[in-house]
Design a protein around this nucleic acid. Structure first.
Lengths: 231, 231
DNA sequence: TCTAAAAATTGATTAAAATCAATTTTTAGA
DNA sequence: TCTAAAAATTGATTTTAATCAATTTTTAGA
């Protein structure tokens, strides 16, 4: 970890009681580091040994996997409150996925050693992680199923709704605009950027969304739900 | 649970120490049931409330998901030693997946209530489940990635190798023959049965496998590994 | 504000794999 | 063993979506 990335302290990272961050950071034996990742910076790369866990305090991070021929698939996009990097520590393996900042991110880093110390002593953390892991499992299975049996358009609808949720938790009342590149959206959906462009245009024609440059605004959520067959 | 499914007791279900089954079944407060599922019988169906967990003592079970239009995707095939059904109990939701016996299966059923009782009191179980959940996560992410970015033939190679592993743990020294229908294989790979037939034939021509009726015998594992790009 | 670079868009073409429609083979029970 | 039903196989056709190749627009910095 480069020295200049480490900050004095993150002010309100433990505000939310019972969050991953507060459980970990408020533990007497934990020596955390507050790190700022700039847009495009890598938190960790797949197939490497896990150095520790990361609590996301602000910003969005993409969780993805790449193939040797540089094809990328985005598994999820996570934001404030998420804890990432723990699975390979617990499973005693290497990182299954890579994590990269999509925008400037403030993160608490807790070393593997400290994390395991808390894990041993805290039934609360164990249970919370177990619940988190089980929920994630369900989510990934859903994605796997969708990509295996459903057409691109349905998956794009699901993707847009997911993105709306992810970018929603800001406290502004303004409508959520999706501002990822077509390439990134295609890596979530599992298709090509050109196909995303064509389908988005079709959706705009059907008044499901509104496109302004790169930005996408959802205007008919109900219909998107129907296409995505989300109940 | 139909009465006639419940057996006297399963003799050696807790033989393997520290297995899920022994941790759960040997707990003083647990009242387990030993159940035999016939080939084709359902253990539980997606979207239903979880009644309890199932330790597989013998036989193979397919874990899958279906769409409204009856398209099926097999997530995994599990056998002896596996514990299934716990995720929705912990995540406090409904079953994300369905589970069906591929052959006659002997299973210990532990009710949700009993399972939660053990979970509260056993840090050992909590940690073991957490590890299991994290490992599964990695596996599903791998599948998701493969289906998102890799061609059918590569995925079929991965599938055959997976099946070899799954059907391997019998104690016989005889070579492992894969004996699923083409339809089932296609539901694992995420393709059509016809495509599976054509690719299997191609693999036979290239001396990777040997086909006898429905049965597939792997004859060149190394080459399959190469196609599947498994390290 | 200006500008090079990145991204989006569009149309044409190709490729991969699905679907359809028989036909043959295999399998699981009776 | 025999036999109906299920599954596998095969070839032809279609569909979906990828890829390719420009061109236009937008964006992120200088």
């Amino acid at each position: 970890m480069a020295k200049d990335q480490i900050q004095e302290a993150c002010k309100n990272c433990s505000e939310e009681i019972n969050s991953f961050c507060s459980i970990l950071c408020e533990h007497p034996e934990v020596q955390k580091s507050c790190i700022t990742f700039k847009k495009g910076q890598l938190l960790f790369h797949e197939d490497t040994n896990p150095k520790g866990v990361y609590c996301i305090n602000s910003g969005k991070i993409k969780i993805y996997k790449t193939s040797l021929d540089a094809k990328e698939h985005i598994i999820s996009i996570v934001g404030t409150g998420a804890l990432i990097g723990f699975a390979p520590i617990i499973a005693e393996g290497t990182h299954e996925i890579s994590a990269k900042a999509l925008e400037e991110c403030h993160v608490c880093f807790i070393s593997r050693k400290d994390f395991l110390k808390v894990l041993q002593t805290s039934p609360e953390l164990k249970l919370k992680l177990l619940k988190e892991a089980c929920k994630r499992n369900g989510g990934i299975i859903e994605s796997l199923f969708n990509i295996a049996v459903r057409p691109v358009k349905d998956r794009l609808a699901v993707c847009l709704l997911m993105l709306k949720e992810v970018y929603n938790n800001s406290n502004t009342a303004s409508p959520v605009e999706i501002n990822l590149t077509r390439e990134e959206i295609s890596s979530i959906v599992g298709t090509s950027a050109e196909t995303v462009v064509r389908l988005l245009k079709e959706m705009e024609r059907d008044n499901l969304i509104q496109i302004t440059g790169r930005k996408i605004l959802i205007t008919n959520e109900a219909k998107l739900f129907k296409i995505g067959k989300i109940y």
